Computed example of a mutant assay.
Amino acid sequence: MPPRSSPTVRQQRLGAELRKLREQSGMTASQAGALLGADQARISNIESGRLGLSAERLRTLSRNYDCDDRDLVDALAGMTGDRARRWWEEYRETLPTGFLDLAELEHHALELRTTQTATLPGLLQTVDHARALFRETANPIPPHEVEYRVSFRIKRQAVLYRDDPLAFTAIIHEAALRMQFGGRAATRTQLHHILEMSESDHITVLVLPFEAGAFPAPGQTIVYAVGPVPQLDTVQLDHFHGPVFIDAAEQLDTYRRIVDRMESLALKPEESRDFIRDIALAL
């Protein structure tokens, strides 16, 4: 099988974790390839995410690297061999790859925690709210692409409705709740939708009011995706040029503390629902 030309973020992550294990063992790519019956180029392509590998081969590599973290090895093995064509692949020719990588991240996460200070969580947006956002991009996009993006965003929300729904915590600043994207009626509908979703057992909505004062990372949208083991957690940040994905251990720890701090400053779930309800009633 030839190397992939554009590996996904998940495929790149698997390769990067294997590279970490190899480097920690002090083994070169040539040595690793020799033990596996392959050449250095194959190991390099695996570590870049350009080539896949079976769970059996991954376990062989982990033994060669003297990795005794069984939970990590099991989690990495679970990332191999997934050749199922997921729903987001139908958008590969029409949307930026970062959108698809985000959908893949959400699909495989065990839990998502997000902080929103200027916009509302994509997983909780209504069609009208999402459409209003996409119509106001820095570089205007044609109407048909707006609809592609709205459709994609709504389909991403399936992770909240599946048989094993994703555990989702949204920490939303008051500023984001008060912004009237799409007008008063659309905003009122959007707030009622958030209220309805917050009643689900697997969804927690927490409001960070203006009166809470200062908080870390103001203005930055953070999505913290919990993996099967802490080493495989991922942070996604929004930027004008597209999603950015972070997985370095020190950075993960920093963003985990930021999200924890913002959650500690936010209102409790029932207080948050009352707060959102009051804003909606005032519209």
Rank of each mutant, 00 (worst) to 15 (best):
residue 240 F to S: 06
residue 230 P to S: 01
residue 215 F to A: 08
residue 146 V to E: 11
residue 29 A to C: 08
residue 270 E to F: 09
residue 169 T to H: 02
residue 177 L to F: 13
residue 107 H to I: 11
residue 45 N to S: 07
residue 23 E to C: 06
residue 2 P to T: 06
residue 68 D to H: 06
residue 81 G to F: 05
residue 134 F to M: 08
residue 59 R to P: 12
residue 114 T to E: 14
residue 92 R to W: 13
residue 33 G to L: 01
residue 26 G to E: 14
residue 94 T to Y: 06
residue 213 G to R: 00
residue 128 D to S: 00
residue 147 E to F: 09
residue 150 V to E: 05
residue 225 A to E: 01
residue 260 D to W: 04
residue 262 M to K: 08
residue 89 E to F: 14
residue 167 A to M: 12
residue 121 P to H: 01
residue 252 L to D: 02
residue 10 R to P: 02
residue 200 S to K: 13
residue 58 L to H: 03
residue 81 G to W: 03
residue 140 P to M: 03
residue 83 R to F: 15
residue 86 R to S: 11
residue 282 A to I: 15
residue 14 L to S: 11
residue 100 L to R: 08
residue 89 E to H: 13
residue 195 L to A: 03
residue 177 L to R: 03
residue 72 L to M: 07
residue 218 P to M: 09
residue 3 P to L: 08
residue 93 E to K: 11
residue 19 R to D: 09
residue 93 E to I: 01
residue 42 R to H: 10
residue 202 H to I: 12
residue 35 L to E: 14
residue 135 R to F: 03
residue 260 D to L: 05
residue 158 A to V: 14
residue 145 E to T: 07
residue 127 V to T: 03
residue 15 G to V: 15
residue 244 V to D: 05
residue 94 T to P: 08
residue 120 L to G: 01
residue 224 Y to T: 09
residue 165 P to H: 04
residue 132 A to W: 00
residue 124 L to Q: 02
